[in-house]
């Protein structure tokens, strides 16, 4: 395992690469004629390993910053990120992509990576009755 400052630099380079490739794919998709479109949008609940507020803010901003993926909302109590993806073949693919980014980010943000476990089962989320906070 690399030491902390190197993990930060490594993450920045990895993220820059992801940022540029996703920009290129989204730009190519816009330019592609409609009948050959590869777009497969989906909104997926991704279990997350973030704990502190700053980690939640960072991961959701980083997801939104790469074009093609967009955080719509988070549920801290269920530890879930609701992510809209532009090219999603199946649920697992987007979940794996987001979780890889989160793993790398947490290893860069935390001095010691600590616990990276995620809830394995999706919780049953019910809508709140009246205009509650997690609406």
């Amino acid at each position: 395992m690399m030491s902390w400052p190197f993990r930060i630099i490594g993450f920045l380079f990895w993220y820059a690469k992801e940022f540029i490739t996703s920009n290129v794919t989204v730009t190519a998709e816009v330019l592609r004629p409609r009948r050959r479109a590869k777009m497969r949008p989906a909104i997926v609940a991704v279990p997350a390993a973030s704990r502190s507020d700053s980690e939640w803010t960072m991961i959701s901003s980083l997801i939104t910053l790469t074009p093609g993926t967009l955080t719509i909302t988070i549920s801290k109590e269920h530890k879930i990120l609701y992510v809209h993806g532009m090219f999603v073949e199946n649920r697992g693919q987007l979940v794996a992509e987001i979780q890889e980014m989160e793993d790398r980010m947490l290893r860069a943000m935390r001095r010691a990576p600590g616990d990276l476990t995620r809830p394995t089962e999706l919780p049953v989320v019910r809508p709140m009755d009246e205009a509650g906070e997690s609406r």
Partner: peptide
């Protein structure tokens, strides 16, 4: 065209 919408469960 959106083929999965898991946020709809919370609506």
């Amino acid at each position: 065209i959106t083929h999965i919408d898991e946020l709809a469960l919370t609506r």
